[in-house]
Nucleic acid binder design. Structure first.
Length: 714
DNA sequence: CTGCTCGACGTCTAGACAGCATGTC
DNA sequence: CTAGACGTCGAGCAG
């Protein structure tokens, strides 16, 4: 297909008349001629269209695949839906594969456009997916995530690796506005397109006293008597707009939401109040017994305000997003949870807390990049003719400071985080396991090809870290040094264990803990085992231990002293504090599998529902990994069975006696307990129960019918 | 005596990726 | 080594 036809198709599918300046520039830089490109421009500057243009080109003209990589599952999903809806009619086969989604890997072979999370692609490489050779275009979105301490290294290694593996592939890196885009260009041999183009302009402002000083626009004068947040909200609502506040902690977000809700309330119409009450009810009843947090959120939502952070349950997040998009919820107070993730259209964003606590550093200014990112989503092309990002100053000195740093200041450079110890040992194990590299020299060569390699002068700077990782991996027996025939030539080979751990995608240190502990595992003890589980790096940071927890925890430690699977740190040791947290987490898990309600767990341990949920999800994967490791180091069969049983109990939050009933579709922790209490204790008992009494117990005919169908009783 | 405000003091601190095999209330 | 907002609780004060 001719270039002009491709462009026309894309314009048509996006219902636009012509390309914007960024897109035109990308074409002139050779987007459709297979040129590698790094595009650094603001959110909503139409970068997705670039992926579509190049994607059509590569599929139609070169008969190769496009992979679209995103740092977030939600983002990958969003693009998948978008691509599918637009291009499936053209015969392009679009799919997605992220984590627990339904596509199987060999199955991806048949698809043209594949949306993936960075980590999923990384894992596919580890599993040596054969279709990787068919990739003609690699689109990596939000590549500024390279700067992220925890998740940046994955992307960096991934891109470096893809560069080696997919020699014939075109690279298209998409990023927010960044200072050192040129280095990216140098890194992958790409042309650089930097632009500040936005379809709707974004204005910055700083609040002080009763005024919002705007830059490039007339100032706003606000009501004097009100507190800053209230004054800004009033001004926004009078303009019939919505607003998002960004705060440093969950607590702050919740506190502000509560305060503002009593203010926003007065601006609502009767119609809105009615609708909001419906939403609030849904939010409150996500769990069978609402926790305090659920109630708090519902009360705020009734009054047109919502707080938003990772402690919320997934359904609640979705409900808030929907209600905000409909214009029902007027104000959201959020942690950074919202600055990534879904695209929530918005008019005005206020970053109230520009300082944040970093352990070991205290409270420090957050990066300019991050503030701009939070501002970035403001100004919806279809609804607003501009967007606003606002900071709050307490006095004139602070105003000047904020202005200097965030408004006029330059963005930070993106820095490689690849030297991160945990990331390094994980990726080095992976590289060796896949036999990409055999010697330390090879490995160092590879690291020269990374983004880091392009930014530092001497690779020796990270040589120590690499050597340390290699040393640890050897010590833990995940890799071995093998002497080849030729003299002076040693190569690293993975052990069976090492290979499996790399595939399981867990931190080698976690795996090491597990292995050492499994060796000591003789008798089954829940607290001991669950404390071990909580030692996993993947579950960190763990919820804090508060004063009221201490006595329970210490009692637990005392009672199980003999049973712990790894040495208990000395009381005066630094690690002791961490150990307390691990035991606390174990106690939380134990409450869960003893069928305590989420409300009760939250009240006893002060842990948000969403937090428990995400820990359980990770634990499921860790428990699977423990079983897999256990198989390799051949631990006793009955212990393996206990772990498997625990995994199911953790999944559903049930006591052991419900393990049988839970196997049925439509039966969870609550219904299984209802049946059990009614005297139906097993599937065998179920067979003997009449359909009438079954439907009576479960208060549902259809459910009883569904269960009987599964037992072939009809 | 009650109810309110103010301030000292103690407490607490963001986010969310992956394996694998099937389905909650 | 570093901060700062929130919540609780008690003191002080007005009515």
């Amino acid at each position: 297909m001719e270039k002009i036809e491709i462009i026309q198709k894309v314009l048509e599918k996006n219902k636009i008349k012509e390309l914007n300046p960024v897109q035109k520039k990308a074409l002139s830089l050779g987007l459709l001629d297979g040129e590698n490109l790094i595009v650094a421009s603001p959110t909503s500057s139409g970068k997705t269209i670039l992926a579509e243009l190049a994607g059509l080109n590569v599929v139609l003209n070169r008969k190769l695949k496009m992979i679209y990589l995103a740092p977030l599952v939600a983002l990958a999903r969003e693009k998948y839906e978008e691509f599918k809806q637009k291009y499936e009619t053209l015969g392009i086969k679009v799919t997605i594969s992220v984590g627990n989604f339904d596509s199987q890997d060999p199955f991806l072979e048949k698809f043209d456009w594949i949306c993936l999370s960075n980590e999923k692609m990384d894992s596919l490489i580890r599993h040596k997916a054969p279709w990787i050779r068919e990739i003609g275009l690699i689109v990596a979105d939000e590549v500024h995530i390279l700067n992220d301490f925890q998740r940046g290294p994955t992307l960096e290694i991934l891109v470096t690796l893809l560069k080696n593996v997919c020699k014939k592939a075109q690279f298209l890196l998409l990023s927010a506005t960044i200072k050192n885009a040129e280095v990216f260009g140098e890194w992958i041999g790409a042309r650089v397109l930097k632009s500040s183009f936005r379809p709707t302009p974004l204005y910055f402002g700083i609040f002080l006293d009763n005024k919002i000083k705007m830059y490039g626009k007339t100032d706003y004068i606000l009501t004097k008597e009100l507190k800053p947040e209230e004054a800004i909200v009033e001004n926004t609502l009078l303009m019939k707009k919505q607003i998002i506040f960004f705060l440093a902690s969950r607590k702050n977000a919740e506190a502000l939401a509560q305060r503002l809700s009593n203010f926003v309330f007065h601006f609502l119409t009767n119609e809105e109040i009615k609708e909001l009450q419906k939403v609030a009810k849904k939010i409150k009843n996500v769990l069978s017994t609402p926790t305090e947090q659920c109630k708090k959120l519902a009360t705020c939502v009734e009054k047109g305000v919502a707080f938003y952070h990772s402690g919320l349950l997934f359904e609640q997040r979705v409900l808030i997003e929907e209600a905000y998009k409909k214009g029902l919820i007027k104000v959201i107070t959020s942690t950074t949870a919202l600055s990534f993730g879904v695209n929530l259209p918005n008019f005005r964003a206020v970053v109230r807390d520009v300082k944040r606590y970093y352990p070991g550093f205290g409270s420090i200014f957050i990066p300019v990049l991050e503030v701009r990112q939070m501002f970035g989503r403001s100004g919806r092309p279809k609804y607003d003719s501009w967007g606003e990002g606002i900071l709050i100053a307490k006095n004139y000195t602070e105003l000047k400071e904020l202005e200097e740093y965030y408004i006029k200041g330059e963005l930070e450079e993106i820095e490689s985080q690849i030297t991160n110890e945990s990331a390094l040992r994980m990726h080095i194990l992976s590289l060796i396991s896949n036999e990409f590299f055999e010697t330390e020299k090879d490995l160092l060569e590879f690291f020269k090809e990374t983004f880091l390699g392009k930014t530092i002068k001497e690779i020796t700077q990270i040589k120590d870290n690499i050597e340390k990782a290699l040393f640890q991996l050897q010590k833990w027996e995940f890799i071995e040094l093998e002497n080849t025939k030729e003299e002076d030539n040693f190569k690293f080979v993975p052990t069976t264990l090492g290979k499996r751990i790399s595939q399981l995608y867990i931190d080698p240190l976690t795996a090491y803990f597990f292995i050492e502990a499994l060796k000591n595992l003789k008798e089954w003890n829940f607290i001991a085992f669950l404390s071990l589980l909580s030692k996993a790096i993947e579950l960190k940071p763990l919820p804090n231990v508060s004063a009221k927890d201490i006595s329970t925890i210490e009692e637990t430690i005392l009672q199980n002293e003999e049973s712990f699977l790894l040495p208990i740190p000395d009381f005066f040791d630094e690690e002791y504090e961490e150990f307390l947290k691990e035991v606390k987490m174990a106690l939380i898990f134990k409450s869960w599998i003893e069928e305590k309600s989420q409300k009760e767990i939250m009240e006893t341990f002060n842990i948000a529902p969403g937090e428990l949920h995400s820990r359980l999800e990770i634990s499921d994967w860790l428990l699977y990994s423990i079983v897999e490791i256990g198989k390799i180091i051949s631990i006793e069969e009955n212990l393996l069975k206990e772990i498997k049983k625990l995994r199911v109990r953790m999944q559903y939050g049930i006591k052991e006696d419900l393990l049988d009933l839970i196997k049925l579709e439509g039966i969870g922790r609550v219904r299984a307990r209802i049946l059990f209490d009614a005297g139906i204790k097993s599937i065998k008992d179920l067979r003997k129960t009449s359909p009438e009494s079954l439907s009576k117990i479960l208060h549902s005919k259809t459910l009883a019918q569904k269960i009987r169908q599964q037992l072939n009783l009809n």
